[in-house]
Amino acid sequence: MSDLSAQPFYQLTPDTVIDAVESMGYLSDGRILALNSYENRVYQVGIEEEVPLIAKFYRPARWSDAQILEEHEICFELVERELPVVAPLRNAQGDSLFRFGDYRFALYPRRGGRAPELADLDHLYRLGQTLGRIHLVGAAHPFKVRPPLDIQSYGRDSIDFISRNFIPASLRSAYTSLTADLLVGIERCYAAAGDVRQIRVHGDCHGGNILWRDDTPNFVDFDDARMAPAIQDLWMLLTGDDRQQQQVQLAEIVEGYNEFADFDPRELHLVEALRTLRMLNYSAWLARRWEDPAFPHNFTWFNTERYWGEHILQLREQLSALQQPPLQLL
């Protein structure tokens, strides 16, 4: 078997996807639909006389087998607590991570639903309740092999990669100076928050990873699960630019959250720091994946002089946000 890191991920074909699913004992009806995923490859595969399955093929060399299994394990723990989480399927031996040729994949039941209405305070309250229950499980014990969400990996490493490989020469000085100031601001926010607790979190808790069904939020895609402060799973639910509006939203989320877990208000110092780290990491993620043909095809606006100029303007706005007082609980 060849080294996974050498396997061209873009050579994954529909026939290979169907063959992999059928290797697990399912009979496909030949229907296959590529879903909106770039980091991994995810497909809906039709099954004869049964509900379709979701097949997730993991990008080589991103996570180790042990790190993927920790993602699966937290999903199993949450399902055992009757939480609305879509967990991978297990075979008769209890395995959830499978191989077909050089590819690693997992199978999931298809779960329908729509995105939550984040402007709806009732939805936010219900999301807060569910996240409180999820974090109660996430705080029970730490990940052993999955990395944390920290300033080094999301911030410094991202800045270094962009500076060395992507930022245009005409913008390098502005980018270098600005990102140095951003790191200072991020570190100041972390210092203000103090020694807040790190728990297992979803890590990428935006509306696209939540399916609203039967008045219940169903959480999917724990691929970015890491050790991080609880606020990482809350701040992305806030919408709009109006501070007062966000504080009303936050109050509703935290009220629901506190029914099951205790939210530490010191973590509010981290909202803009975590937002900044996400912005830095997102650009670096696109850059690191630029040799994958799916990325230039689907992100045509990336890696142009205009993109980097606008990115710097957004980061300047974020530097100002880092200097503002944190959101408060009403």
Rank of each mutant, 00 (worst) to 15 (best):
V196C: 06
D292T: 00
Y108A: 09
T304W: 05
P265M: 08
N209F: 01
G309S: 13
W285F: 02
Q129M: 07
S2D: 12
F143R: 01
G240M: 03
W290T: 00
C205I: 05
A230I: 06
E77C: 14
G185R: 07
P326F: 12
N303E: 02
A192H: 07
V79M: 07
R59N: 05
G185H: 11
W235Q: 11
Y125H: 13
I231Y: 01
V137N: 10
A34S: 13
A20M: 07
L97N: 01
G155K: 01
D150G: 14
R164N: 10
S163K: 01
E80D: 13
A115Y: 13
N281M: 08
Q11M: 14
L53S: 08
A230W: 09
A6V: 11
F302C: 00
H202G: 05
T239G: 04
Y190L: 12
G112V: 14
R110D: 12
A174V: 03
F57S: 02
F98W: 08
D224T: 08
M279Y: 02
A106Q: 05
E187R: 10
E39F: 01
A192T: 03
R62P: 05
E267I: 10
K144F: 12
V220P: 03
I74V: 05
D122R: 11
V86A: 10
W212L: 05
A180S: 13
M24E: 15
L270T: 02
Q247A: 03
F299A: 06
L330D: 15
A55E: 02
Q246S: 02
I231Q: 04
G208I: 00
Q44Y: 12
G101N: 08
T130C: 07
G203P: 02
A180F: 13
G94D: 12
A193H: 07
D204C: 03
R59Y: 07
